[in-house]
Design a protein around this nucleic acid. Structure first.
Lengths: 360, 360
DNA sequence: AACGTTCACTTAACCGGTTACAGGAACTGG
DNA sequence: CCAGTTCCTGTAACCGGTTAAGTGAACGTT
């Protein structure tokens, strides 16, 4: 039970010192483990701490020492993809003895900067931006400024699962996944199964990651001698709902026999749309997703998708931020690979005909 | 660009003051918006801030002022249910002008206490524990102690989506959902459809929320004149995988025609198990879930489940922590309702027979 | 001209820790 | 017995902000 000082406010190190009959320096040293005091003193101090229910004030402490704080900025703490990446960041951070905090921008791009500012004020050792968003020139300029400021204070800004779109060399460390080749592989998978009318359920065109996936898709088409048809590309915002709507348009307005979706979420929407329109998957429509979030296993049919190493993206980001030697270049970039994992949502278009059904 | 002081470390308020030719007090007041200085002074200070790339040190600042910090502690930042609740907490917190941080225990119960300690050290205004875990007596005692300490410092500890299992009256605010009656309704729904052999895919028995669901299930059975059969209750840990395994046992060892699952995740496992064993859902097996996470819409068939108002649980928790008047009782408790949302995973067992199939 | 206000700021004492420096006791060796 | 270490501890100056109290100039009043 707390006693001694009036029960208002919290006990300070001086309260502890005077109760234990020692100086504040001694208390500070004992509590921070800076040295081993003789048992008698040690016990007396610990007893006082207990009696007063003393808790160090970490804010005051970090005026003199480093905070040991890693901050993550996420757009949407509800997104499985981002949070899987985040769990990788955290795993590595606590393995390196740091405290790891997540803060959300709630989908508002401007809040990204203010959250960064906030963690910078708090003395974060590293700030890791998880996931992407539509970035204006100005936004990127401010990001660069923030990175410089952090740099000067000995901290790092790292982009994770988000490419740098600011032209030239990125002023920060970047960990990303090679999505262009992932998209290439996914589209090739569909083409190899015999599809020629392969649609793409794209992400928002302002999203850099969406652009990469679109490029991989088009490159695969060309590589297989198929002419890209703009009518087969529909845009959605990567959510289930907008995926559903875009897929409906694709299914009613075009003769697509397969859809490559920019995310597993929108693939879930596409599968639901197919079902509601009476097209069975994969017999009458093949679907491929992107990301390989846990949901992919739960869809019916189980979703063939491009696996993105989410946890590993996160871990790499933390390593980049923390494991730094003086001779390292000012900004580094690591690109992880992706590969398609085959499940049950793809079948040859041929089956359509053997079943005696007509397409279009 | 930063100039003036050597580029090491970061600029302090004194650097700004001397560059602008005013005292630190003036800078502090202008920056914290405490008063409106004449334009000339104001501009000079702002210019100095810009030139030096000055960022306040929030740690130093919060030595004198309150931190305005709300901390959430979550077991698994990858869990859709918890993160939906968390997004509610956050939404309300930023609406109330606070900064909101999420910290994970990574599933380790002991880390819950150290994370609480950590945020307490940091002067958090409120700490919100999202979701439950198996709690020992000792753990609860330490939680109580932490709550008292926070109380004394003018902060609050709130349990969200997690009942207090410490006997007697909870020493903290609690927001929970009436899961017993949700489970009652879900089971009743199955019984009303004509099922008499209703199994329960329970959560771990140490989990308080799992206990509530089991009780509701049994009460519904008795209310419909069905004798609870222990053989029909299988335990899993609420994940998809363990749900799959437990459901397999249920399907091969018993004559259950319906399963009420303790979570949507384990329901996903149950549906997969049924599919792999050749039992079609809902025609040959009805399934009901619990939570109503987004996944429920994506399963096939779309999952009938008990809707838990996740965001609202979170919002209430924040309100409880922040909107407090002096005359309020030391600890409050709010219980939200739940209701079953009917989708496509339940059908009468009768169909089994009309299709000419035999059960067991 | 004398006086009370208001305005625009400065001085200096905090907030709650850490830590460089210094002092005294105990121990060691000569 | 004394100098040299070593060990333990205290004093006080920091860290980087906020803020109560105070100062001096300008202004309006009578």
């Amino acid at each position: 039970m707390a006693q001694g000082r009036g029960s208002a406010g919290r006990a300070t190190i001086r309260d502890v010192a005077s109760r234990a009959g020692v100086s504040v320096a001694t208390v500070s040293r004992i509590l921070s483990g800076a040295y081993t005091a003789p048992p008698a003193t040690h016990d007396r101090v610990m007893q006082a701490v207990q009696d007063l229910d003393y808790v160090v004030n970490a804010n005051a402490r970090s005026l003199n020492t480093t905070s040991g704080l890693i901050a993550m900025v996420v757009n949407d703490i509800t997104s499985p993809f981002f949070m899987n990446v985040a769990s990788g960041v955290e795993e590595q951070a606590v393995a390196d003895g740091r405290v790891c905090l997540v803060c959300s921008t709630q989908g508002v791009p401007e809040r990204e900067l203010s959250v960064i500012e906030l963690m910078r004020q708090r003395g974060a050792e590293a700030i890791i931006l998880v996931g992407g968003m539509a970035e204006t020139e100005e936004h990127l300029a401010q990001l660069t400024a923030a990175a410089e400021g952090l740099e000067r204070a000995g901290s790092r800004l790292v982009l994770c699962a988000r490419p740098w779109k600011g032209g030239a060399k990125a002023p920060v460390d970047v960990v990303e996944c090679d999505m262009e080749s992932g998209a290439f592989a996914a589209t090739s998978h569909l083409l190899s199964a015999g599809h020629t009318r392969v649609a793409h359920l794209a992400g928002p065109h302002e999203f850099s990651v969406a652009g990469q996936r679109l490029e991989g898709y088009e490159r695969a088409l060309r590589a297989h001698g198929v002419k890209p048809d703009p009518a087969l590309v529909a845009e959605s915002d990567m959510t289930r709902e907008s995926g559903y709507e875009a897929a409906c348009r694709l299914l009613t307005d075009t003769d697509a026999t397969a859809i490559f979706c920019a995310s597993d979420m929108s693939a879930a929407g596409a599968i639901a749309a197919a079902r509601d329109l009476g097209r069975s998957v994969p017999d009458e429509l093949s679907v491929v997703g992107f990301d390989d979030i846990p949901l992919a296993e739960d869809l019916y049919p189980r979703l063939t998708t491009v696996h993105v190493p989410q946890q590993e993206l996160g871990r790499s980001a933390t390593r980049l931020a923390l494991h730094r030697r003086p001779m390292d270049p000012p900004s580094r970039r690591v690109v992880l690979g992706s590969h398609v994992v085959v499940r049950q949502s793809v079948a040859p278009p041929a089956r359509l005909n053997t079943l005696g059904k007509v397409d279009s």
